[in-house]
Amino acid sequence: MTESLPATAVVRVGRATFEPSRYAEFDALVRKQAEYLVPAIEELPGLLHWFTGVSPEGSMVQISVWDTEEHAEQMDELKLMAVVARGEMEAIGGKFIRPIINYPIDWTI
């Protein structure tokens, strides 16, 4: 399936690590955070897709697709994500990998 995206679309990739022994706690927190993050993120202009996944091996990824780099960069200023959610994750041992990178999309399937 080929999807038509704007020529300016970008993929934003955020990652974090945690002790695998804390997987259940980390996974439960990420699911709880969706209750307040999803509505806030959906209000931002330019969001095309969002995926969050937590691995029992001690890794989390957030992948989002935005129509422009400018819109992707809104996530840097979303306090619910940058302060609240990050603080909750760090409190249980989450370590965020910096920088978060926005990748221009070259092709899709």
Rank of each mutant, 00 (worst) to 15 (best):
T2R: 09
T2K: 09
E3S: 05
S4R: 09
L5M: 08
L5K: 03
L5F: 12
L5H: 05
T8M: 08
T8K: 05
A9C: 04
V11C: 14
V11E: 12
G14E: 01
R15I: 06
R15C: 11
R15A: 13
A16K: 03
T17R: 11
F18W: 03
E19M: 11
E19Y: 03
E19H: 14
E19T: 09
E19S: 12
P20N: 01
A24T: 13
A24D: 15
A24K: 12
E25Y: 09
E25H: 11
D27C: 08
A28D: 14
L29Q: 04
V30S: 14
K32C: 10
Q33L: 14
A34S: 12
E35A: 08
E35C: 00
Y36S: 04
Y36F: 15
Y36A: 02
L37M: 15
V38T: 14
P39L: 05
A40C: 02
I41F: 02
E42P: 03
E42T: 05
E43T: 10
L44P: 05
L44R: 02
P45M: 00
P45R: 00
G46D: 07
L47T: 07
L47A: 13
L48Y: 08
L48A: 06
W50E: 11
W50D: 13
F51A: 10
T52P: 03
G53R: 09
V54I: 14
P56F: 12
P56R: 09
P56Q: 12
E57A: 11
G58W: 08
G58H: 05
S59E: 15
S59W: 04
M60P: 01
M60D: 04
V61E: 13
V61Y: 14
I63L: 14
I63Y: 04
S64I: 01
W66P: 01
W66F: 10
E69S: 07
E69T: 06
E70A: 15
E70P: 01
H71C: 06
H71V: 03
H71S: 10
A72P: 09
A72N: 03
A72Q: 03
E73K: 04
E73L: 13
M75P: 00
E77L: 09
E77C: 05
E77G: 07
L78T: 02
L80C: 06
V83I: 11
V83G: 03
V83A: 06
V83F: 04
V84A: 00
R86N: 01
G87V: 10
E88V: 06
M89H: 01
I92R: 03
I92Y: 04
G94Q: 01
K95Y: 08
F96A: 03
F96L: 09
I100G: 08
I100R: 10
I100H: 10
I100V: 15
I101E: 12
N102I: 07
Y103H: 15
I105Q: 03
W107L: 12
W107D: 14
W107G: 12
T108E: 15
